[in-house]
Design a binder for these strands. Structure first.
Length: 196
DNA sequence: AAGTCATACAACCGCCGGAAT
DNA sequence: TATTCCGGCGGTTGTATGACT
């Protein structure tokens, strides 16, 4: 359905222009989010639904923090990464205003190296030190090296009420109000999240 | 000053799970 | 119950920018 809609149009890729940002923001402000795949066209965008969603979730939605991570945020990321592994959305849910994409990038750019360094600076007897730092460099030393008694997937359940979805659409108090809602079959509930 | 390399960030891709039909 | 569709997630890639030679 929506896939066919997207297939019939030549979709733009690559960096978003300020005009596109403005169009998407204005559309969501007016109509809310009802169906990413279908929204792009009436919003005047030649973008895939996924592209629109990503742009909104990661950059345009209210409440997003940009810029440097604080020491506290970095420590939180490191702590949570030790517990959760590469579950960026779960980590992001604990850092208001930060997105999973941003955290993931920051981890790969800064923290992973630092974390590796810290591990390597540990005494020889330290049990959690990776045995082969060189090969781990290529495998990006994921916390898959966690001991088997550390619960991983199930931990997510303890965050059950928190999801990037709720984070994405909440920011608790969106600074705008939906003016009207297109009468389109399949409109979904996330619209309500934008109602003040 | 020019070329090369490394880093950081933005965006895309493919897969998966849940909801709707 | 099976199928389809959408949204979300994590991994990966592309590009811009700065540092270094």
């Amino acid at each position: 359905m929506a896939k066919s809609v997207e297939k019939t149009r030549a979709l733009r890729k690559g960096a978003w222009s300020p005009e596109e940002d403005q169009k998407l923001t204005a559309y969501i402000k007016r109509y809310g989010i009802w169906n990413w795949a279908e929204m792009a066209k009436p919003a005047g965008l030649q973008r895939s639904g996924k592209s629109c969603r990503l742009r909104w979730v990661n950059y345009l939605r209210p409440g997003i923090k940009h810029g440097n991570f604080t020491k506290e945020e970095e420590q939180t990321i490191i702590d949570l990464h030790q517990k959760l592994g590469n579950r960026w959305s779960a980590i992001a849910s604990k850092l208001p205003g930060r997105t999973d994409n941003e955290i993931k990038n920051h981890w790969h750019a800064h923290l992973r190296k630092r974390f590796k360094y810290d591990l390597n600076s540990l005494p020889e007897s330290e049990p959690c030190q990776p045995s082969n730092a060189e090969t781990d460099q290529n495998s990006s030393f994921r916390i898959d090296l966690l001991p088997p008694n550390v619960p991983r997937p199930s931990i997510l359940e303890s965050y059950g009420s928190i999801s990037t979805d709720s984070l994405a659409s909440s920011s608790s108090n969106p600074p705008f109000e939906i003016e009207e809602k297109p009468n389109i079959k399949g409109s979904i509930g996330s619209l309500d999240n934008f109602k003040a």
